[in-house]
Design a protein around this nucleic acid. Structure first.
Lengths: 235, 235
DNA sequence: CGGTCGTTTGAAGTGGTTCAAGCCTTGTGG
DNA sequence: CCACAAGGCTTGAACCACTTCAAACGACCG
């Protein structure tokens, strides 16, 4: 399961460039940026990540996927969001794990935002803080789309809508190629994010494929037709 | 329909005291607080409230109810949240009304946060800003409860859960009495907040009443049994 | 090569929607 | 003061989207 935690001393991450671009950093800042990406915190897949400190800590994902979720008293789960490279994640102290916890879906590398800011050159600090604020704003904005998805869309629409969102976010950081994109989730994860049963997610995925929206197999989404997905996601 | 907009020059609002208490202001700040509550912006019931400026503006509700919502292309609505006295509301420019708009459910009085902060005494500013930050944090935290509600709860549970939330929030600001509380919503509003049809909200309200959770009639929730509501809201 | 986790399919049940009609309440104008 | 209209509430009946339970299959791992 695990595979990270022993890695290199951060050769430029595959997604870092796209990351810098979508964060809107000026070249001069971007240049010194990779110097800032230390110390890197690494977590193996399936790790439950929480803040060691008693206060919440804001991290920034460099590599890998996480999800934010809550486990209900009866054991069912609700996934709030997926975090991928370039996304901010707020880690809560372990004591609050009942309300919200962050789980690594793959091996993950991230940095501590507060620490990075103190390490930054004075001249760059404001710009970097702004870029991270922007990312946080975007993430918050997505919460509204999530509510619409759960409240007012059918199973097929929810699925199409989520895949569309992930496609576009991954595309922004250069993680979509002509063959589609990597999606390290099980159908159960999708179900927990979309408020559906796994069985019905399975059937909806089949419909989605037959309708020409996209195909999900072996942790990859292929044959993506973005326009078709958008159609299927709409009412 | 309208009834405000001509009112007095702000005699202490009924809820202001509870408001100050739940904001955790020290007596010295609280004393000067009511002086700050000007100029008051007033909106009539059913008004669509948006920022006149091209940038978002943060307001703080003194009196009345609002809701944040999105209208979908097909005319259906999703209500994101209800705002009541003491809550922060972010108003967006009218251009973004398709994504999110704020509607007054009753006549409403609010103040502009940025302006209030500049008017505050230097010594008080930090404390007031912190109180408003806290309120904003609470509101954000509720977004997660909302996702669980929509994703993982049945109609009856959603209803009980929402009424419980509103009961507790209103209680905090002293707007619950022995007869229950005022709830200026139609069943359609509840449906749009809970991702249900109005017809089913109606049936669920009946069940809720028969199950001894609460009774909703004539814009009031009465016969509230908080413990029973909590039971019904759980899985 | 057997075990485990994830996927797939079927069949039956149910919770919620939709459509349609009637009713109640409130506000409006004669 | 009554008549009427409009909006919201209530109920029934039929339908369908999604769930649940159950079983089989496939891929990966030790």
């Amino acid at each position: 399961m695990s595979e990270a935690s022993g890695g290199f001393n951060s050769p430029t991450h595959p997604a870092t460039e796209g990351l810098i671009r979508s964060a809107g950093l000026t070249p001069s800042v971007a240049e010194s940026f990779s110097e800032l990406l230390r110390p890197i915190e690494r977590y193996p897949a399936a790790a439950v990540i929480s803040s060691i400190a008693p206060t919440p800590r804001l991290k920034w994902i460099l590599k890998g996927w996480v999800c934010e979720m809550r486990v209900l008293p009866d054991g069912r789960r609700q996934i709030f969001s997926f975090g991928l490279p370039g996304d901010p994640v707020l880690l809560h102290p372990a004591a609050l794990a009942k309300l919200r916890c962050v789980v690594a879906l793959t091996s993950v590398e991230c940095i501590d935002v507060a620490r990075t800011l103190t390490r930054a050159r004075d001249a760059d600090r404001a710009q970097i803080a702004k870029a991270m604020d922007n990312a946080a704003d975007l993430a918050r904005e997505r919460r509204y789309a999530d509510l619409v998805r759960l409240g007012r869309r059918s199973a097929l629409q929810r699925l199409a809508d989520l895949l569309l969102e992930l496609h576009d976010r991954l595309d922004q950081i250069g993680m979509v190629d002509e063959r589609g994109f990597h999606l390290p989730l099980t159908q159960e994860h999708l179900a927990d994010a979309l408020g559906l049963s796994t069985v019905h997610v399975n059937r909806s995925l089949k419909t989605l494929r037959l309708e020409g929206g996209a195909t999900f197999r072996f942790n990859r989404v292929i044959q993506v037709d973005r326009a078709r997905l958008a159609e299927l996601a709409q009412a």
